[in-house]
């Protein structure tokens, strides 16, 4: 019996604002275990991962925090060789700042989409997973007078962000998957309703996630859809 070999890139987007303080440790644990859960699920389906890389995008709020605290990204860590460095980056995440919601989550999402995804393997997955307990600032907010340090390459509107996801400039149309653990708030509901290959678990950063829903999410990523 044969199976297929996949190259999998995971980008984990974590809201690290103060309101996440009560759940940040659970989110960090989820971030650390997600790749092994996915790997196990794919193996069960005779899909074998020959290259697995993980990257972190940690965000707060450009409108409330210093630019260096508002968006922090890691390189891709190749697992299992760079597990320690990946775990160390996750370990350093602390929940603070952000002011009141919303947060600059969509800017972080754009950064995740612009990840240096692996290319070459015929069968691959580009997976973005978001954990947040808050809504997102509209990208259109304060157009023309953005805060200092605000990413120059951030999309100017939600439509432009949608183009990043649905177009082929950044994402592979067959390989892409996005899972959002977020409340029923802007812009997560719109993303789940309108973007291809996305799943939205309505909760504060995945709180109360049932096993069967988690399995459905992993199936949606690992299997053909």
């Amino acid at each position: 019996m044969q199976g297929f070999t996949y190259s999998v890139d995971l980008v984990l987007v974590v809201d690290a604002t103060g309101s996440m303080s009560g759940i940040i440790e659970r989110v960090k644990a989820s971030a650390l275990s997600f790749q092994s859960d996915l790997q196990a699920m794919m193996k069960e389906k005779n899909k074998f991962i020959d290259q697995l890389r993980v990257r972190l995008v940690v965000y707060r709020d450009f409108y409330a925090d210093a630019p260096e605290d508002s968006l922090r990204t890691s390189p891709f860590y190749t697992l299992p060789d760079e597990t320690e460095a990946f775990a160390a980056f996750v370990g350093e995440i602390k929940a603070n700042g952000g002011g009141d919601e919303p947060e600059t989550a969509l800017e972080a999402l754009a950064s995740a989409m612009r990840s240096p995804w692996a290319s070459g393997a015929a069968r691959r997955r580009q997976v973005i997973v978001v954990w947040t307990d808050a809504s997102a600032h509209p990208l259109e907010k304060d157009s023309g007078r953005k805060p200092s340090g605000y990413p120059e390459d951030a999309p100017a509107s939600f439509d432009a962000l949608t183009d990043l996801w649905e177009g082929q400039e950044c994402m592979d149309q067959y390989a892409k998957r996005m899972v959002v653990f977020a409340p029923d708030a802007y812009a997560w509901t719109d993303i789940a309703n309108h973007w291809e290959n996305t799943a939205h678990y309505v909760s504060k950063a995945g709180a109360g996630l049932a096993d069967r829903d988690y399995k459905s999410i992993l199936d949606g990523i690992s299997e053909s859809i």
Binding site: A192, N193, T198, S203, G220
Partner: peptide
């Protein structure tokens, strides 16, 4: 409907 919403499911 549950708490999981998705166009891929």
């Amino acid at each position: 409907s549950g708490r999981l919403r998705s166009r891929m499911l």
